[in-house]
Structures are given as structure tokens and as C-alpha cells.
């Protein structure tokens, strides 16, 4: 486990800012305690200082996970968000998409959101903007990327994709063994 380098921090922040914009500052600078990002096994964990100090007594090989996994760095040094980061993305999300109850299941099985399943969408969403997907009851279901801007969404036919799927809470069951 080690702190991120500046380059790594930058790539991670750039990816995070697609979803929560400048709200990253609220993650870095928290009034309720000191939280930090740590890299372990190419994965970035968001840990409170207290837990980090406890975790130092566990050897590197034995440590599976600590804190909240935000995502991982790929071999080409790109950052990929994991569904476990949803707890921190959802409260600060700038752009949201609500899916209709009928389309919830298909999204949770890993498919894209169609226009027919789109309940609401934050206005002024531009194309390829990172969005957090909610159910109509405001339960965060996952996140993705807007395939169409809000304006275009109105005009497209019901079967066209509106939000590209990136991660959903169904992964907690589907890829149980790889999520940490």
C-alpha cells in the first residue's frame, strides 16, 4: 500500500470529475475526519486515517481490501471506476438519470439504458457526460455515460441507447469474487 503519485492522482481525479465535477474537493477535504487515497494491488482505496493506521499491521500479501475501493489502474495506467465507488459518487453526482421501474432490472443485469426505460434526466446533460443512474425511488443503481445529450434524448426513437452502462449494483453478485 502506498500513496498515489501526482500523475496517478491526476488521472483518478480526472475520471472522478466526470461524475462529480468539482465535488471531489468534498472527498479530499472532509470535516468529519481525515480521509486519503491509497494504492494497493493497483486498486485505489479511499480510507479514513484511523483505519489506515490499523491496516498497516497487515502484511501486503495478506491484505485483500481496506476502506472503499474506488477503482483500479489498468496496465496501460488508465483509471477505471468500480461499482464500490458508487456510495461516494451518488451523493455528489452532478448529472443523474432516473430509470423507469420496468427498465431497472435490465440495467442491473448489465445492459445499457434505452430511451424507453428513461424516466428523467438532468437537463443540460451533454453527450458522453458521466452520469449516475437512479431508480425512480431515488435509489442509486450504478453509473454510466450519457450516449445522447438531454436535447437529443427527446427526439430519438424508444429503442436507441441513452446511457451507456459502466457499472451497476448487480455486479456485487455477478462479479462477487473480483470486487474488493
Amino acid at each position: 500500500m502506498r500513496p498515489l503519485t501526482d500523475d496517478e492522482t491526476k488521472t483518478m481525479f480526472e475520471k472522478l470529475s466526470k461524475y462529480i465535477g468539482e465535488n471531489i474537493k468534498l472527498l479530499v477535504d472532509r470535516p468529519d475526519g481525515t480521509y486519503c487515497f491509497r494504492l494497493h494491488n493497483d486498486r485505489v482505496y479511499y480510507i479514513s486515517e484511523k483505519i489506515l493506521k490499523l491496516a498497516t499491521s497487515i502484511s501486503r500479501e495478506k491484505l485483500v481490501s481496506v476502506g472503499t475501493c474506488f477503482g483500479k489502474f489498468t496496465k496501460t495506467l488508465k483509471f477505471r471506476l468500480h461499482i464500490t465507488a458508487l456510495d461516494f459518487l451518488a451523493p455528489y453526482a452532478k448529472f443523474k438519470v432516473w430509470v423507469k421501474p420496468g427498465a431497472e432490472q435490465s440495467f442491473l443485469y448489465g445492459s445499457h439504458v434505452m430511451k424507453s426505460g428513461l424516466g428523467r434526466i438532468t437537463e443540460n446533460t451533454v453527450q458522453y457526460q458521466g452520469v449516475v443512474v437512479y431508480s425512480m425511488a431515488d435509489v442509486p443503481l450504478g453509473f454510466g455515460v450519457a450516449a445522447k445529450s438531454t436535447q437529443e434524448c427527446r427526439r430519438v426513437d424508444p429503442l436507441s441507447i441513452v446511457v451507456f452502462h459502466q457499472a451497476d449494483i448487480g455486479e456485487y453478485i455477478r462479479s462477487e469474487d473480483t470486487l474488493t
Partner: peptide
């Protein structure tokens, strides 16, 4: 690399600086 448990306030400041530059 920076130490695993170092000065948390400077670490925070560095991250905020990075955010400012990005903004």
C-alpha cells in the same frame, strides 16, 4: 513514493492543488 503514513495535511493540500490546476 511518499510515506504510507506521512503528513496527511500536506497530502491533502497537494491533492487540492492538483484539483485547482485541473479546474
Amino acid at each position: 513514493f511518499q510515506p504510507l503514513i506521512g503528513d496527511f495535511s500536506t497530502e491533502k493540500q497537494r491533492q487540492l492543488d492538483i484539483l485547482n490546476i485541473m479546474d
